[in-house]
């Protein structure tokens, strides 16, 4: 092929690659041309030709930089969000049988963090999804390098009663691991995370009467707001133990360690009084005739007189 034909066809090629977004290939082609021109003798307008090519190369570098710098996730429309929410199939194991979870995970994994956090927050009310939802909220903030916001959320859970003590501890550990993994710990070392400790009681053991049963309002779950009465199976001062049969799943799931019941009623043979109770433990009985049932322990924090 004659020299100018060769150049012409290379120009055409480079232009095609550029128009198709194949910027590296366009760049390589221009570089090939530079080498060809420089190594060929007696080229007419050699300087002008090389100048033209170097302008093209500059423009390509500029375009490449632009593509790299534009790293924000796109703002998506309602239709687009719907399409995103369907990315993870409803029956995917990660979704744990919940279409809402599948949708929230799809949003999170595609960088739609605000919408994802909104959905995960709604899922906090579901017992089987609460822990995963909380961890994912933390994940979404950390992905955006918003350590403070993630921490704020974790702290909120530590004092509130949305999550149980076990769940809070799990989320906290998850948060710390994520922060470390991303090398963000410098920011956190100054922030002191408090441990969620069992709160002190204002009452002395000897001031508490024998209690037969107790009544309190459920804080979450499908029976949220309902008052339940439970018999005390064992009492040690301010610690009350009660049994919840395994068939009463809804009740078991709506009470978590760390829950505080304000205005709880305590019934003793001689009097009825009210006060604040704190759920200090919830365990499954692993042996004996009550195997599988739950033992719930409530610590009396104060008594209204």
């Amino acid at each position: 092929m004659r020299f100018d034909e060769k150049i012409k066809s290379l120009v055409k090629e480079a232009e095609l690659y550029r128009s198709q977004g194949l910027l590296n290939e366009a760049l390589d082609t221009y570089k090939k041309m530079q080498v060809l021109i420089e190594s060929t003798q007696n080229v007419k307008n050699k300087e002008t030709l090389l100048k033209k090519i170097s302008n093209k190369v500059d423009a390509l570098y500029h375009q490449m930089e632009e593509e790299l710098s534009d790293i924000k996730p796109p703002e998506v429309s309602k239709d687009e969000q719907d399409a995103i929410e369907n990315l993870i199939p409803k029956d995917d194991p990660e979704a744990k049988g919940s279409p809402e979870m599948a949708a929230a995970l799809s949003l999170a994994k595609t960088g739609q963090f605000d919408q994802a956090i909104e959905k995960f927050t709604q899922l906090l009310s579901q017992d089987s999804l609460r822990f995963d939802a909380a961890k994912n909220i933390v994940w979404c903030w950390i992905q955006q390098k918003e350590v403070e916001k993630a921490l704020g959320r974790v702290k909120q859970w530590m004092v509130g009663n949305v999550l149980s003590l076990d769940e809070v501890n799990g989320v906290r550990a998850y948060f710390e691991a994520l922060v470390k993994e991303l090398g963000l710990d410098a920011q956190i070392s100054t922030v002191n995370i408090q441990k969620k400790l069992e709160p002190e009681s204002e009452v002395e053991d000897q001031d508490i009467l024998d209690i037969n049963s107790t009544r309190f309002k459920l804080l979450r779950g499908s029976r949220k707001g309902e008052e339940v009465e439970l018999e005390i199976s064992f009492q040690a001062g301010k610690y009350l133990k009660m049994l919840v049969p395994k068939r009463d799943r809804q009740l078991i799931e709506s009470v978590n360690v760390g829950d505080r019941f304000n205005g709880m009623q305590f019934y003793s043979p001689m009097a009825i009084f009210s006060g604040t109770g704190y759920v200090s433990s919830k365990v499954t009985i692993s042996a004996g005739p009550k195997k599988g049932d739950y033992s719930l322990e409530i610590k009396i924090l104060n008594i209204q007189t």
């Binding site: 790293i71 996730p73 796109p74 595609t110």
Partner: peptide, 17 residues
């Protein structure tokens, strides 16, 4: 509708539907 989400960025999705 055909949905095309096309932008640059590393944690973003580009996909069509």
């Amino acid at each position: 509708k055909m949905i095309s989400i096309d932008t640059h960025g590393d944690r973003t999705l580009f996909f069509d539907f």
